[in-house]
């Protein structure tokens, strides 16, 4: 059970949260112009890294806010949480993780 620091409520146990998958995947606004493959990439394909993962969590039993978390999928280390729209938690020495879509716009 991870202790997760909600950016609003502070540290709470994982059982108060639900997981929302990879963060910073921007929904295409020009979907009509996308090929099936490009659209399929957005809907189904994820980075799924071994290592640093930027991901979304929802404080379902708390303030009901979505936020982002940087966590290592191997070591289990949580490097930080931050609100949507805030810059990513800087993780020194962490491997650079490619982001969906390549250019990594903030969500």
């Amino acid at each position: 059970m991870l202790p997760i620091r909600c950016p609003w409520c502070g540290e709470r146990e994982q059982t108060e949260f639900s997981y929302g998958g990879e963060a910073h995947i921007v929904r295409p606004t020009d979907s009509a112009d996308l090929t099936d493959a490009e659209w399929g990439d957005y809907v189904f394909f994820r980075t799924n890294p071994r290592g640093l993962h930027y991901e979304r969590w929802f404080h379902a039993f708390g303030c009901r806010r979505w936020f982002n978390m940087a966590r290592d999928t191997v070591s289990g280390a949580i490097h930080g949480t931050y609100r949507p729209g805030e810059p990513r938690t800087d993780v020194p020495d962490a491997p650079r993780v490619p982001v969906a879509g390549g250019d990594g716009g903030e969500g």
Binding site: M1, L2, Y19, G21, R50, T73, V74, G76
Partner: peptide, 13 residues
């Protein structure tokens, strides 16, 4: 367990 992990360990809950 609900979240991505390669750690071969899950959560006690």
């Amino acid at each position: 367990d609900p979240y991505n992990s390669y750690a071969q360990r899950g959560s006690f809950d």
